[in-house]
Amino acid sequence: MSRHEISLTVNGERYELEVEANRTLLQLLREDLELTGTKQACERGDCGLCTVLLDGVPTKSCLVLAVEVDGREVTTVEGLSRGEELTPVQRAFIEQGAVQCGFCTPAFILAGEALLKHNPRPTEEEVKEAVGGILCRCTGYRQIIDAILDASKSAKK
């Protein structure tokens, strides 16, 4: 199997790594970089829990090869807060009780962040559409959608 030298930026930090061809971005993040905020579940694109931002774009990392991200920028949930200071989306998730078991939370927060960056005042339908690829088994989604809507209102214009 081929091996490849790659360099990538994860949460603002640069890494030079050697990866085997069959390594997924999800494995690279969790196993090599020990960033376990990104969750591993179905590994076939269905659940969305492995969602990260690839050059700012929400992407299911179980369907991306590590070798492909050479030269690119990845943001995981660990890269959002500044120290103790949470983002408006993160705060809204806590305030709305949008977190139960928490397994889906990193994915929803990242999808919410990406949405608000491009569309600071989304409608409820737009929020639903944006998080449509992520499953939550606990909350019933209502609180998650409300949290993202709340964050859109509380963020600075």
């Binding site: 694109g45 969602t51 774009v57 992407t59 299911k60 999808a111 559409e129 944006a130 449509g132 690829g133």
Partner: peptide
């Protein structure tokens, strides 16, 4: 087709 995250790829 699928969802927006899948469609990004």
């Amino acid at each position: 087709l699928a969802d927006p995250t899948i469609r990004n790829r």
